[in-house]
Design a protein around this nucleic acid. Structure first.
Ligand SMILES: [Mn+2]
Ligand SMILES: [Mn+2]
Ligand SMILES: [Mn+2]
Ligand SMILES: [Mn+2]
Lengths: 223, 223
DNA sequence: TCAAGTATTTAGACTAGTCTAAACATTTCT
DNA sequence: AGAAATGTTTAGACTAGTCTAAATACTTGA
């Protein structure tokens, strides 16, 4: 069996892989796990021993198939628990992550498949992230960042690329939630801020950083 | 904060207290936690340092109010999760304990009260054990062991005093479940076995050990 | 009552995970 | 290319929890 610490490391490596295709760097892992590089090195040696990763000193790390499998299982658990917390217990999307961070490590042969069934086999979690099925398969979503839209575009918010409480609470505040309709009214080059209309009602100015972290489905302007 | 290990120790001491009113013995704790006496001694020192227990070398241990409070909170969590697993995810009563043993350590300010509400504020868990409310209050049940009934008595199964898989699976097997009606048809002195009729249907012989671990509400014979 | 037996505690060691500081590689810049 | 800066690993130490073996205290019963 794997400890919850090992699971968190494998998950972190999995999530960082797209940004570091030929080897996730020690410092990147240290940053997302809020730990020191030396601790990461120790764990990488151990995960390498166990055959979960391919680790070359100073070169970074890639997941072995078995390590990816573990990572995807943990992510499946995390996202299903998030759905449970949001839909059944009425937690908001900024509250669920840290609880799911613990729940994802509960060990049981049947638990997660039963939970999946109970929730109606959801395909996405409350942040718009896809939920791997029992076999680890899931759709990669083909979304686009809000900041890449053009003036006049209309789009639907389908996900967030940042999960901090502060970010999510701000979105909650301005009623910019999963499924919200966004019209791009204007874009300002000097600070890359964007003026949008939300659900045909409120108009609001969004900062560059915000627009970078909002995923939308691109729809063509109505013309 | 307390580690899950500390929580398990406090819970064990709490549960053993009725049997050891003037000090729970090291060896008793070691047995229920399936660990060694020397490990228990180490932990008792630590819990004593922290003010959770009153520990006198060689004399056993009693809970301080603050330690009892922690223990009751953990028990509340354990039993509510058991209700969730049984009622929402259709686990049987022999499967829920070990999962709840993990879930009881999830840390969150709101989680357990939300779960309580979601479940409709249940008063008893699937084994018939009372669930402490938000303030730690719960009814002590005034039940009696099946073996203390007399021939002719009719009673309802309201709890079990043993939580092993084997015991619970056996009861499941003979359809002797929470709420079952039990009529005492005969009692045999030589091995203290008891012949009963379950729910007015099947007749079965129950061993002494079994009868000791089944709690019933005593009802007077219909006469 | 005191010797034997039993229970408990102490001593010392081990694993998992973490950290700081120092050593060592790699990359970047002049 | 060589020096400086940056990133990574190693060395050594620390905490939480556990264990075995030895020492010590309590209990029992001859
Ligand atoms: Mn986690
Ligand atoms: Mn999520
Ligand atoms: Mn537990
Ligand atoms: Mn129970």
């Amino acid at each position: 069996m794997n400890s919850s610490t090992e699971e968190d490391y494998l998950k972190a490596i999995y999530k960082l892989t797209p940004q570091f295709p030929d080897g996730v760097l020690t410092s990147a892992i240290a940053e997302v796990l809020e730990t020191k590089a030396s601790s990461v090195t120790d764990m990488l040696k151990k995960l390498s021993e166990k055959g979960y990763i391919n680790y070359v000193k100073y070169q970074g790390v890639t997941l072995q198939p078995i390590g990816e499998e573990v990572a995807i299982k943990v992510i499946r658990k995390h996202r299903l628990w998030e759905v449970f917390l949001a839909e059944k217990l009425d937690f908001t999307w900024d509250e669920i992550h840290e609880i799911a961070e613990q729940l994802e490590h509960i060990v049981s042969v049947n638990l997660i498949d039963r939970l999946d069934k109970y929730l109606g086999f959801p395909k996405f979690d409350p942040h718009g992230d896809p939920i791997p099925d029992k076999n680890g398969k899931f759709q990669k979503i083909k979304d686009v960042a809000l900041r890449d839209l053009n003036v006049g575009d209309v789009a639907i918010l389908v996900g967030v690329r940042e999960h901090s409480k502060e970010f999510l609470q701000y979105l909650e505040n301005i009623k910019l939630l999963l499924g919200s309709k966004i019209e791009v009214l204007n874009k300002f080059a000097f600070d890359e801020s964007v003026l949008v209309k939300i659900n045909g009602k409120s108009e609001i100015m969004l900062s560059s950083l915000l627009c970078k972290n909002i995923s939308v489905t691109h729809e063509k302007p109505k013309k």
